[in-house]
């Protein structure tokens, strides 16, 4: 029972973690992409389509990534190339993604695919309690954990990460030092799009083995909120994602047990708990915020 609950928590948290990780990188480069929900749902549609046509989870995941990146490329062309307002472009992206995904999904409504295979290491996976939890997840869980471990390292320790943070902190200064701000930001937006697409694809590939329009159910917005409430710090982001996943699974079980609270209130619990905890964390932080100073501002060099 406990093992089943823990396993479902991991599955519920992974898409949030994937999408939020990508958005964190995008925002650290100074670009606010509110289109996460749209990139996720298009990733879900294309991810399901890819897996359904080929029977391969791997192809499905790649299709999801490609779809998210394609939508992100459109966003980059608008906000970086044409310096369109990022908030408006991001909202438009969500609406576009939702519509497109419904269109793509028309062809495979009611179809099912086999769920992503889980890791099986003889001996280790059979260990009691921790076996399935640590060594028996689907591959995308490990990808999400690898990402969230790699991001702080890359941001803090590598030149690429330093340049990315510079573009997010003071784009004009980065330009004056000879960096191609547009290129850096475009790459960050594409990375965010790929992550969101993969997060979306995770839903039909590993969570529920079919596609339904609207199956992202606001997870893209939660991912956006997680980035802000985690003060752009990867460790807090992971804590927030897993907290949200845990509360959303636990409240389901609590409802099943028949706790005398209205189900609407219970369904709101994950949102409440995540916001409250992350707000409390961000209140006790010390020193300067790592909020990217140039977040949401378009940069056009003088000519």
């Amino acid at each position: 029972m406990l093992e089943a609950i823990l396993l479902s928590i991991v599955t519920a948290s992974t898409p949030l973690l994937l999408a939020a990780s990508g958005e964190l990188v995008t925002e650290r480069a100074g670009v606010l992409n509110l289109g996460v929900e749209g990139m996720m749902i298009i990733g879900a549609a294309c991810g399901f389509g890819g897996a359904w046509l080929t029977g391969s989870t791997m192809v499905g995941a790649l299709c999801g990534i490609a779809a998210g990146m394609a939508l992100a490329a459109l966003f980059a062309a608008m906000t970086i190339g044409l310096a369109v307002n990022q908030v408006a472009a991001g909202l438009a992206l969500t609406i576009l993604g939702t519509g497109l995904a419904g269109l793509i999904g028309l062809g495979f409504v009611g179809e099912r695919i086999t769920a992503a295979p889980h890791l099986a290491i003889p001996g280790l996976t059979d260990l009691p309690m921790v076996g399935k939890l640590v060594f028996g997840q689907d591959p995308l869980v490990y990808v999400s954990l690898g990402l969230i471990a790699a991001i702080p390292f890359v941001l803090a320790r590598t030149r690429a990460g330093l340049v990315l943070r510079a573009a997010g902190d003071n784009a004009a200064a980065a330009h004056a030092l000879g960096y191609d701000v547009a290129k850096i930001r475009t790459l960050a937006v594409l990375f965010g799009g790929g992550c969101a697409g993969l997060a979306g694809a995770y839903l039909p590939l590993a969570y529920t083995p079919f596609f339904a329009p609207g199956m992202t159910a606001g997870r893209g917005w939660i991912a956006l909120a997680l980035v802000v409430f985690a003060s752009w710090r990867p460790a807090r982001l992971m804590a927030g994602a897993y907290l949200f996943g845990a509360v959303s699974i636990l409240q389901l079980h609590a409802q099943a047990f028949g706790i005398g609270l209205p189900s609407q209130l219970m369904s709101a619990l994950p949102y409440l708990a995540t916001v409250i905890v992350l707000v409390l964390i961000s209140r006790v932080r010390r020193g300067g915020s790592v909020a990217p100073a140039a977040l949401g501002t378009a940069f056009v060099p003088d000519r």
Partner: peptide
């Protein structure tokens, strides 16, 4: 006007 990055 300094071309510096305040958070770095």
């Amino acid at each position: 006007h300094f071309a510096l990055f305040d958070n770095l």
